[in-house]
Amino acid sequence: MPAALLPKPQMRGLLAKRMKFHLLGAFLVSTGAATLFKFAVAEPRKRAYAEFYKHYDPMKDFEAMKAAGVLEAAPPK
């Protein structure tokens, strides 16, 4: 008779047990990724757009494009 017997493997409920672990892990990883994206990408982008449009003059930009000959409908003077 062998000195050390191996324990029997768990056969019932193994998928459900592993599924709980992996679903919780996937939820935590996806929440972390979404939070990281929001604060590392989306918020700085919003601030950059707000800063750009705070000092943006569309008529000045239009006149500069017209003077450069970029617009075909508005010939330069």
Rank of each mutant, 00 (worst) to 15 (best):
M1H: 11
M1P: 09
P2F: 09
A3C: 03
L5M: 14
L6M: 13
L6T: 12
L6S: 14
L6H: 09
P7W: 04
P7Y: 04
K8E: 15
K8C: 12
P9Y: 04
P9A: 14
Q10C: 05
M11T: 15
M11P: 00
M11H: 06
R12E: 13
R12T: 13
G13H: 01
G13L: 03
L14F: 07
L14Y: 06
L15W: 10
L15K: 12
L15E: 13
A16S: 11
K17D: 15
K17E: 15
K17W: 06
K20G: 01
K20E: 12
K20C: 02
F21Y: 09
H22V: 14
H22P: 00
L23H: 07
L23S: 07
L23A: 06
L24P: 00
G25N: 10
G25H: 08
A26E: 08
A26C: 05
A26I: 11
F27I: 10
L28C: 13
L28F: 13
V29M: 10
V29L: 15
V29H: 00
S30E: 06
T31V: 15
T31Q: 11
G32I: 01
A33K: 01
A34Q: 05
A34K: 02
A34V: 06
T35R: 04
T35K: 06
T35N: 09
L36I: 06
L36F: 12
F37R: 12
F37G: 05
K38G: 03
F39W: 15
A40I: 01
V41S: 03
V41D: 09
V41K: 04
V41Y: 10
A42P: 00
E43G: 01
E43P: 00
E43S: 05
P44A: 03
P44Q: 01
P44I: 02
R45P: 00
R45V: 08
R45K: 08
R45H: 08
K46V: 09
K46F: 03
R47C: 02
R47S: 09
R47A: 15
A48W: 03
A48L: 05
Y49K: 08
A50R: 10
E51N: 12
E51L: 10
F52E: 08
F52Q: 05
F52H: 08
F52I: 01
Y53F: 15
Y53A: 03
Y53G: 00
Y53W: 13
Y53T: 02
K54H: 10
K54G: 00
Y56N: 09
Y56D: 09
D57I: 04
D57S: 14
D57T: 03
D57Q: 07
P58E: 11
P58A: 08
P58L: 01
M59Q: 09
M59Y: 10
M59N: 07
K60G: 07
K60P: 00
K60T: 13
D61Y: 06
F62I: 05
F62K: 01
F62V: 02
E63R: 04
E63Q: 08
A64N: 06
A64M: 07
A64T: 10
M65T: 07
M65G: 00
K66I: 02
A67Y: 02
A68P: 01
G69F: 08
V70N: 06
V70Y: 09
V70H: 05
V70L: 12
L71T: 06
L71V: 15
E72I: 04
A73C: 10
A73D: 15
A73H: 11
A74H: 11
A74V: 13
A74D: 10
P75R: 05
P75L: 04
P75D: 05
P75C: 05
P75S: 02
P75K: 10
P76L: 02
P76G: 02
K77W: 01
